[in-house]
Design a protein around this nucleic acid. Structure first.
Lengths: 255, 255
DNA sequence: AAGTGGTCTAGACCACAAC
DNA sequence: TTGTGGTCTAGACCACTTT
């Protein structure tokens, strides 16, 4: 649109920034593949006649911008820009069902669960009384063994007595709701989306760097029999996960 | 949920991380207000018996985590955690109309515009032939003088001949569509959301740091008369902007 | 003038990976 | 053993703000 430097922000007069530009230009013009090592810090420091720390901050900027990844003992590499997964939201089909249908190697794992009292801010959401219990599950969603999202499910215990007895061979929460408790398929009432910095869970499970943005999607699901049955939160790497919603039932190509 | 360090990620054995923890604990336990200066780098370096660079990286971590802001010549300060704006999406009411109704001091400014040929990847979206023209507007949305979002509107020129003649006293695109061209109110067909790192426009207009995640919302709008009339992209600071959608027309409190 | 954060140098030692 | 990135030290100079 207009002239701009390749690297956004910061003072272009800094040596570290100039070197970052040069490295980025080198990657782009020579089309360095992601498995080929970039010049080492020491080599570039000597080549540009600067201290190694300057090269380090240059590489550090490129890492935080998502252009480069670094591996200790091995070196720096052009970042592999993963093709993003597109989560096509449907208010009538669940997360697991969509991804399970889309990918052969889709998995769903429960990491941990608790059963605790409802929190004050949840009372209105679930229509519960103080002191009632809520199941809280932390689950991972994997495609081809790679974690694509950390999810949190919150379910009022009164709708799912002895819920933990159904955790074996866990595939999808909705299947438990329907097959074990006889509820109809939950429907999404509302959805709330924001971008955030990664928290410790995200870093741990998603295997992302501190600078990767995370998209968080919070939604409530209900059935006619129970009212709100689940408050569901998804955390996914922002650069790998796109939430798509069609209000007309048409297919749409995305760029 | 489980025991975790206050600061996410990275090796807790590093001095810089331990110092970051201490600074954060100091802020939290003493409830330091955002306008009160935190201890200087030199002072903390002396106090903890480490090099100033270590204190610098500790502060740097806290900045990137959004806990602290730094101002050259003045010092470090606890970050002001802005109350997020909630954009309650409605497929039948536009962005400007929602915020204009919600905030007294809502503004809408055109930063720049161009009229260029349709791009190959846009052909299907707009149902255009190669060579047809598209208006592209870059606009800012402000609340109380503060930029809350950078927006990009793409509109096929054939639906809005001499579009630029209506840019004076610009309030909302939808008003131009309706009042100047006689179209019905555009309706949102689809929406696509992701989290990203800030680009140069975001940094420039949103006044955010390089580590602030950005939420991007892309949507298509159409009218019965024109088909798809607008492809609309919103960039907003992830920590200040929440996209909310209710599929039932109920009010919902958010935490 | 003194204090603040921002950039940069020159060097040390460590953990890890490859040869 | 050598080379890689990761952490840390000790110091210099600069830009900016406050006193």
């Amino acid at each position: 649109m207009d002239n701009r430097t390749l690297i956004s922000g910061e003072n272009p007069h800094e040596k570290s920034m100039q070197i970052a530009e040069k490295i980025l230009a080198y990657i782009k013009t020579n089309k360095i593949p992601p498995d080929k090592r970039l010049p080492s810090e020491n080599k570039l420091a000597e080549q540009f006649g600067v201290n190694r720390n300057i090269v380090r901050t240059a590489y550090s900027h490129l890492c935080s911008q998502g252009y480069v990844t670094s591996v200790q003992g091995k070196g720096h590499f052009p970042a592999r820009r993963a093709r993003p997964l597109i989560y096509k939201h449907s208010s009538t089909i669940g997360f697991s069902e969509i991804f399970g249908k889309k990918y052969d190697e889709y998995e769903n794992k429960i990491v941990s669960w608790t059963k605790t009292e409802v929190k004050p801010n949840e009372l209105a959401r679930f229509g519960l009384e103080e002191g009632e219990m809520v199941y809280r599950l932390r689950t991972l969603r994997l495609v081809k063994g790679e974690v694509i999202a950390v999810c949190y499910s919150n379910i009022p215990a009164k709708h799912v007595p002895d819920f933990e007895e159904h955790f074996e061979n866990y595939e999808s929460i909705n299947r438990i709701f329907m097959e074990s408790y006889g509820y109809e398929h939950p429907v999404c009432d509302s959805i709330s989306v924001k971008a955030a910095n990664a928290n410790s869970d995200d870093l741990k499970y998603l295997g992302i760097s501190e600078n990767t943005p995370v998209i968080t999607i919070a939604s409530t699901f209900s059935t006619a029999q129970t009212g709100v049955i689940e408050y569901f939160i998804i955390h996914a790497a922002g650069d790998k996960f796109i939430l798509n919603m069609d209000f007309k039932n048409e297919e749409r190509a995305d760029d």
